[in-house]
């Protein structure tokens, strides 16, 4: 098994133990697979289906239902710009246009160097600090052109600011 390795299985058992029914761990385990490979491969879904004793069709249906699952490897930095109402009013379309221009890609695409994937997403739940962009696991708020440019520079140099909690 390429994806559901013994190491993965050990992690998976701990996750399954949180639920009275093993198949409830399907989404967390898909997330785990994506964490390890950057996306959810066909083969990974097959192996996971066998591991949880589920039909492949269910695993695929779940994977394609939720937006956070990548079907192909994404760039090193997944730039997800919120395009919903508050961020729209705060200038999200302008930010998206600037990103398209600077990176030379459209939404849904990845730069040739594999560094950036650009997506427009729906409300990220941080509207008071609009416009908001999520990069991998981090939120970047109150963005304007200057801050966006600075962030892109940081990212190009491999600096993804971790947040202080």
């Amino acid at each position: 098994m390429a994806f559901v390795t013994d190491e993965f299985k050990a992690k998976a058992e701990k996750i399954c133990a949180k639920y009275p029914r093993r198949d409830a761990a399907l989404i967390p385990l898909l997330q785990e697979l994506q964490k390890e490979s950057g996306y959810v491969a066909e083969e990974a879904m097959d192996e996971l289906a066998r591991f949880l004793n589920l039909p492949y069709a269910r695993v695929k249906a779940v994977m394609t239902f939720y937006t956070m699952f990548n079907r192909e490897p994404a760039g090193k930095y997944h730039l997800q710009v919120c395009r919903n109402i508050s961020c729209h009013m705060a200038g999200a379309p302008g930010l998206l246009a600037r990103l398209r221009e600077k990176l030379g890609i459209a939404e849904g695409e990845t730069t040739k160097d594999g560094l950036f994937t650009l997506s427009a997403v729906e409300c990220l739940g941080a509207c008071g600090a609009a416009p908001v962009m999520q990069v991998n696991d981090e939120y970047f708020e109150r963005l304007d052109e200057a801050r966006l440019d600075a962030l892109l520079e940081d990212l190009k140099h491999g600096r993804l600011r971790a947040r202080d909690l």
Binding site: I85, G125, A126, C127, L165
Partner: peptide, 14 residues
Amino acid sequence: EGEPGTFKDRELIL
């Protein structure tokens, strides 16, 4: 917390 315009639960959790 997905309702557009809503960001209170995030604040509360933090």
